[in-house]
Design a protein around this nucleic acid. Structure first.
Length: 399
DNA sequence: TCTGGGGTCCTAGGACCC
DNA sequence: TCTGGGGTCCTAGGACCC
């Protein structure tokens, strides 16, 4: 028997979920039915569209464009803020509901998952009937709609769930690829982004069919080792398994867009301090150590610069992350006006075996580890706002 | 009041070793 | 003696996804 995979995707997730949040709070209007978006705060320069309603989509509003542009397309646009804790809650409810039917679920993002239906086929039978059943159950018990794609592999299941929306079930089985997928724009193919689409178009490749029938050697010059997989995807070939257990994070990062451009070193240090603190807490909460620290900068012209260093000893100590990031900033920053600043930790390991390098100040390290641990506990007990190092406080409130 | 944040993976080029 | 070449590690930058 052929393999059967499903992809379940919440329609306009953030917007649908905020609609429910508002209705629960007594809001009279369902924002799913008006021209509305979830967007960031423009005053702090976070003004982009995070999600849009179906009516907003009809006006041509797209995700990630500026609210300014979106408003030009729909002057009556309503903009609502995001509520991540609520989204997490809804996401959990969704995956718990699906888990009742199979353990073979791969969570792909906060609002998407794959399920390996092959193993439960004998239990539930016709996958299309099952998909409709689960779609209705989600709508009736959780209050939001999903699209479900059914296919013989993950790639095609995901492509299928992206067909007509919302509240639909689609199939894209192997024998339907030429009919349903080949006519689509090559840019609609998973993993073909803006740049690859442009390049393919230049080469006269416009549809997925064009790519499927392209010659490997002609494309190799432009796409190198991605060529083979690209052509296979266009043909609907994909052998990736549904991976139930989420792989452990390989890195973590935190970046922040500043409310104005900053070219003052000590102010940039203050941001690094705060970010180091947040990352340190996250790192310790998953019992990991970071091998590499990188500073990420974006200047006023949106030019991004990164500078990284591999540590001689993986660390989970906030002060080490902060000191390293300061040094990295000093080495790479030329005084340009900074729009975004952040830190990325890579090469996360569970290795607790801490070897002190030769001239390290052992006493300081032990003290800092102890300080981090005390602060983590207090934050866990009283909430993250309750305690901070004096250096994190606003200057006029310093102890 | 113009352009977020958090991830993964790939590539090119330099350093270094044998 | 008009100066190889393979392998590995590391860093910077970029493409792609949600």
């Amino acid at each position: 028997m052929d393999r059967i995979v499903m992809h379940i995707d919440v329609n306009n997730a953030f917007l649908s979920w905020t609609a429910l949040d508002l209705l629960e709070k007594g809001y009279k209007k369902d924002i799913r039915n008006v021209c509305a978006v979830i967007g960031g705060d423009e005053k702090s320069r976070h003004g982009i569209v995070l999600a849009k309603s179906t009516p907003a989509k009809k006006y041509g509003i797209v995700t990630a464009e500026t609210l300014y542009q979106a408003r030009k397309k729909c002057p009556n646009l309503e903009i609502y803020p995001s509520n991540y804790p609520y989204y997490q809650k809804k996401s959990k409810e969704l995956f718990e509901l699906i888990s009742k039917y199979t353990p073979d679920i791969e969570q792909f993002s906060i609002d998407e998952c794959f399920i390996e239906y092959t193993y439960v086929y004998n239990l539930y039978g016709d996958p299309i009937k099952f998909a409709y059943k689960i779609k209705e159950e989600i709508k009736n018990t959780l209050g939001f709609t999903v699209n479900i794609g059914i296919a013989n592999n993950k790639l095609c299941a995901k492509m299928a769930s992206d067909f007509e929306k919302p509240d639909k079930v689609h199939t894209l089985f192997s024998n339907e690829i030429e009919e349903k997928m080949y006519p689509l724009d090559v840019g609609d193919l998973l993993w073909i982004g803006k740049k690859s689409k442009e390049k393919l178009n230049e080469l006269g490749i416009r549809t997925i069919k064009d790519l499927a029938e392209s010659d490997y050697t002609n494309l190799y010059y432009y796409f190198k080792n991605q060529t083979k997989i690209m052509i296979e995807h266009a043909k609907g070939i994909d052998n990736e398994p549904v991976v139930v257990q989420r792989e452990e994070a390989k890195g973590m990062s935190k970046t922040t867009t500043l409310d104005r451009d900053v070219n003052n070193r000590s102010e940039l240090y203050d941001y690094l301090n705060s970010i180091s603190n947040d990352l340190g807490v996250s790192l310790r909460s998953i019992n990991k150590y970071a091998s590499t620290v990188a500073v990420i900068l974006k200047d006023q012209y949106f030019k991004t610069k990164t500078h990284q260093i591999k540590l001689s000893n993986p660390t989970n100590i906030t002060s080490v992350i902060f000191d390293t990031s300061k040094k990295l900033l000093d080495e790479t920053w030329q005084g340009e006006a900074i729009r975004l600043i952040g830190i990325r930790l890579d090469g996360l390991t569970s290795v607790g075996m801490y070897q002190y390098s030769l001239f390290e100040d052992v006493k300081t390290k032990e003290k800092d580890t102890e300080l981090d641990s005390v602060m983590d506990k207090l934050k866990g007990k009283y909430g993250s706002k309750i305690i901070n190092k004096a250096s994190l406080l606003p200057k006029n409130k310093k102890m």
